[in-house]
Design a protein around this nucleic acid. Structure first.
Lengths: 340, 340
DNA sequence: ACACTTTCTGTGAACGTGCACAGAAGGCGA
DNA sequence: TCGCCTTCTGTGCACGTTCACAGAAAGTGT
């Protein structure tokens, strides 16, 4: 109780009321911008607030109103990927922007361990937030189950199959993967493989499915490797494996730009040129894509818009509006650059 | 009020007490792990909790106890840098880890606009958190002033001069900059410049000061450029300017690895080799450093430990313990690789 | 002068918890 | 039997708001 000891006592609405010679009801109305407050009362209250240094106690307000005007953004990522994944940051910022417009506070919660999971479930149940946006949940994510159980308004970024009845925003990973693979094939490649990643997430498995779609009869299981993370290192290891398996490979679809970057480095080290000997395409259109030499052909996904849409949707849910559709799919765009 | 309408009503401590045939006082004691609860009562309460599906209402608990067991991490960064800066993520994870150990919830708040600043100040005053860690505050940051005014226990990562009496953890940017510059000079460079950044932050200005220290009489103002952000683009623009000013420049200290990466790309495009024609060193030891060709000589700063220390410190403050020293400086390490 | 609306104000009762206090029940020694 | 300690339990109040309601004050039309 250090805070209580050192500071005298926070001014309450009672203090303001006494100072302004009105009742706390009037002060409350004024604070909440309700009508029916006289000009004279308004003036007196304003002065009183300034004088006693009053600020609302949100805990009390929450208790009385049963809402908090805060929305959680839950990020479930192993450490290394959180640092490398360019989408999460953009989603975060997009969500924050939209919530800010609605005067809601974004509260970002990180799941780094099982212990975090349990504590965060308590936090969500505790009434600290009115809703939640979940980023990068995987199939059968405990936190997703907890949210469903609590009944907290929630929107997923992405669409895990294990939570089919939850609201979501996302992109059509499968179609996009198909299209970018076709673009790669259109450059005349004969032996095309994929470095897949994160098959435990919908984005990962759908990208693989799209690749398969595009390859049709030419699909060769032997030319597909997969790794847990969308990381540069996955690209490095994956490319090494593929080169061992098929030295004549001439096309690579990497599950993300970071993966592609790793793969490209290995190709270079092995003396192969890009796009001369091997064509390579990625996914995300993150800054990895621009930093590659040559720059990467990839799929642009509107990460910031995903965040914005998720925020809009959760605001609707919180306000009792049922969204027209349970999910929203945002368009992606093929970006052709020099790598294929 | 959608939530109230759709869901029946949350179980309270009263419901548990009634179900277990004890008083709410006993339930409360049990919940808080206090002694003096009989085994029979304990059993009955446990069963009752499970039966009615009770969870604590944190808002009410906050109101009664005047604490929240949550700590804010406030990030003040323009969008682009938030995405590029490798340190912030690591600090975030370090802080989360330490707080998690103490069973505190980390709540991450993003300042993206002035509007955010004001709302966050309200949030902090509102009793939602017991303390705060502030990352990348700049001089005369409004949120820093607000925190000081509120009297909320707070720890800065970094040490703005405009907030001298706040607690902080950080590194000795000046000494580290001096040392890495000396390492660069030791490779025999004659015309050495600096691409500085973020001079409105203590880290930025101190790195420049350290560079100046190392250069001594050889310091040439004409070979220093500065930019607002620690970004790759700053490196690109800065390097172009320096090459125009002095085509014979043969050494560069970049204010961060990202800046160095941009500079290196420009050097390559201009036909200069690294480290043959120009030696270059950076700061951070982020993954930028490893992705450069050649890899970057740089200063390793323990970003995750900074987060952990900041968390430990704010926990001390919250618990009424005055830290031994107002600030803590963590050691850095020079990493020599191929770029100089 | 009267009823009637509109504008404004004050009050009691929640919201769900923790804490201090009073007191009950049981064991124990004199 | 009495007093005393230890263990356990129940109750009133505080925390600082919002909300519903009752009612005062002021204006409006007849």
């Amino acid at each position: 109780m250090a805070r209580q000891g050192t500071r005298p006592r926070r001014a309450t609405i009672f203090d303001v009321a006494a100072e302004a010679n009105v009742s706390r009801g009037t002060v409350s109305r004024m604070l909440n911008g309700e009508p029916y407050v006289s000009d004279s009362a308004r003036d007196a209250i304003e002065k009183a607030i300034a004088k006693v240094g009053y600020v609302r106690n949100m805990a009390a307000r929450n208790l009385a109103t049963q809402r908090s005007k805060a929305i959680a953004l839950i990020v479930h990522e192993p450490h290394s990927v959180f640092l490398e994944d360019p989408n999460i940051g953009a989603i975060l910022l997009g969500t924050n922007e939209r919530l800010s417009e609605a005067d809601y506070q974004l509260v970002c919660l990180i799941i780094g361990s099982d212990r975090d999971s349990a504590r965060i479930a308590d936090y969500l149940r505790g009434g600290f937030v009115d809703g939640a946006v979940i980023v990068s949940a995987r199939e059968h994510d405990p936190i997703a189950d907890a949210i469903a159980h609590i009944g907290l308004p929630a929107v997923f970024v992405g669409h895990p199959e294990s939570a089919p009845d939850m609201h979501y925003v996302g992109i059509d990973n499968r179609s996009a993967a198909r299209d970018i693979t076709r673009a790669l094939l259109a450059t005349g490649r004969k032996r095309v493989g994929m470095i897949a990643a994160a098959l435990d997430r919908d984005s990962g498995s759908e990208r693989l499915a799209g690749f398969r779609d595009a390859m049709g009869d030419d699909f060769d299981e032997n030319l597909v490797v997969d790794f847990p993370l969308y990381s540069r290192n996955s690209g490095v290891e994956g490319m090494k494996t593929l080169l061992e398996r098929a030295g004549d490979i001439d096309g690579i679809f990497a599950a993300s730009d970071a993966v592609a970057a790793g793969a490209m480095d290995v190709l270079r080290q092995s003396g192969r040129s890009v796009p001369g000997d091997v064509g390579i395409v990625g996914f995300d259109d993150s800054d990895w894509a621009l930093r590659c030499q040559p720059q990467l052909s990839t799929v642009r996904q509107p990460a910031d818009l995903l965040g914005r849409e998720a925020a809009s949707m959760v605001l609707e849910l919180v306000n009792g509006v049922t969204p027209e559709t349970p999910g929203r799919i945002l368009p992606t765009e093929i970006k052709l650059r020099g790598s294929a």
